[in-house]
Amino acid sequence: MNYNWNWGIFFQPNPMGTGTYLDMLLAGLALTLKTAALAWVIALITGSIVGVMRTLPSKGAYWFGFAYVEFFRNMPLLVQLFLWFFVLPEILPKAAGLWLKQLPNAPFWTAAIGVGLFMSARVAVQLQAGIGSLPRGQKMAATALGLTTVQGYRYVLLPMAFRIILPPLTSEFLNTIKNTAVAITIGLLELTGQARSMQEFSFQVFEAFTAATILYLLVNAVVVTAMRFLERWVAIPGYITGK
């Protein structure tokens, strides 16, 4: 392979004047984590609401949940980001559209909300399955004790359902982190974006991508380890989760 390796490149100053190339990548990593964190909060909250709606006896709630999930699941994330970023400001009333366009950090907010909503559909599906996997008698027992529907979900169904779906939620969280890379297309300089610009400036393509790869692997390892601890922490003595 006649490629000129130059691992020292990371410690050379980047052309942006923001320090070395390594600083550039780390700034990208920070933005990846920030975007993913906000997206995950959005995904968890809206996904939980929609997931619960899909388990309620009300037909209306069920169909809303169904339509919501289908809407966000059947379009590529990239297309969804384009819709929020390019299309939404144009079809809103003029003033609102203008305000959106002038928003500082528009790529960041679009990415966080876009990825968050995209992932919320998946969280909803997981939670629905988690609640569905509980014995029917649990809901009945809660009801028979006089708990209202809200109390039944809050104190009985959700604490168990979330414990059961913790492993798949871990993968969805990792997916959220990975999916923020799609926002490179709307100009978000997250980790992959920074690796790409490092490659364009320095032509050291493989060093740049190797570094980004290692950073993604590290993030994965940290998240997986943290979630293992969380799983152990919330585990119930004597109760065997999983199938």
Binding site: V182, A212, L217
Partner: peptide
């Protein structure tokens, strides 16, 4: 499975 598809495409 640890890497974003975009990065793999570039790779």
């Amino acid at each position: 499975r640890s890497l974003p598809l975009v990065l793999v495409i570039f790779w």
